[in-house]
Design a protein around this nucleic acid. Structure first.
Ligand SMILES: [Mn+2]
Ligand SMILES: [Mn+2]
Ligand SMILES: [Zn+2]
Ligand SMILES: [Zn+2]
Lengths: 139, 139
DNA sequence: TCCTAAATGCAAGTCATTCTCATTAAATTA
DNA sequence: TAATTTAATGAGAATGACTTGCATTTAGGA
């Protein structure tokens, strides 16, 4: 993934914080919270302030570089590099593991809703909460 | 709706705060936030502290007397008296209107997930965000 | 190189929610 | 009914995720 090219493509200035956050998100294999990103810096000295991280994430959200996930069971938002298609999730309330689901089973349902209610649709969120295989055994 | 009977039924002590919150939620025709409940008291003097309201709501959640809705676009939770079936929602990001959807289009999908991933399922949330009919005209 | 708007760092602020702890009240028991 | 036990409440402080104000820096274009 070419970070600089991506930023230029999205008309975002190529700054150190943006490159760093992009790199951290790209190397992570799942969702990260703003705080995860903050603490993924080895030495606090060369870290980024949380305010900057939030601002960077906002700019990424606007340009659809990242996607945001609101967790029901914890009061935080998680971020990851946006993949081509929006995804739905299977979330373990014990270990916070997030499994991506490729399919979207509500596409035609959504079309019906637009029709029926005259809604201009922004997005939908569909997430399943439960206890994963491993955590069930561990309990 | 018989508030006292409901509380007794759920093994909750019949206290003034609980009866009040129950009544307010029952009379409201949609979702309310903790703050909505707080400010629905005419005179601040005979109001309930927010801490109590949150505690009452927690006890109601545990007994499934109320349902909770997490809004993606605002950082708050909304509550309403639980109806028989869980519901999904069509939410206007302009006026915060919430339309209840009776159908659940993901039941069989959920069954498949349990099967496939060995998840013990708690709940799922499915909400559609957009701009309602009226707000589209108003903009 | 110079200029300007945009981005940053830091600190302080916000706001929903939770917690602490002393006091009160509900339900159980005697 | 009175005493006992235990959960619930009120008041306010604390928390924690996120946001904002403002002075300073920097990116990218002129
Ligand atoms: Mn979908
Ligand atoms: Mn459903
Ligand atoms: Zn798990
Ligand atoms: Zn609307």
């Amino acid at each position: 993934m070419n970070y600089e090219a991506l930023l230029i493509n999205k008309n975002l200035k190529k700054t150190f914080p943006r490159l760093k956050v992009l790199e951290i998100l790209d190397r992570a294999d799942g969702f990260l919270s703003a705080d995860d990103i903050h603490s993924s810096f080895k030495d606090e000295a060369h870290s980024l302030p949380l305010s900057t991280i939030y601002r960077v994430l906002d700019s990424f959200l606007k340009e659809d570089i990242v996607h945001e996930l609101n967790l029901d069971h914890r009061n935080i938002k998680l971020y990851e590099i946006a993949h081509k298609h929006h995804a739905h999730h299977l979330i373990c309330v014990e270990c916070d593991k997030v499994i991506h689901l490729k399919e979207c089973p509500v596409h035609s349902f959504e079309e019906d809703l637009k029709e029926t209610y005259g809604f201009k649709m922004n997005h939908h969120s569909l997430d399943f909460y439960g206890v994963c295989d491993q955590c069930q055994k561990a309990l």
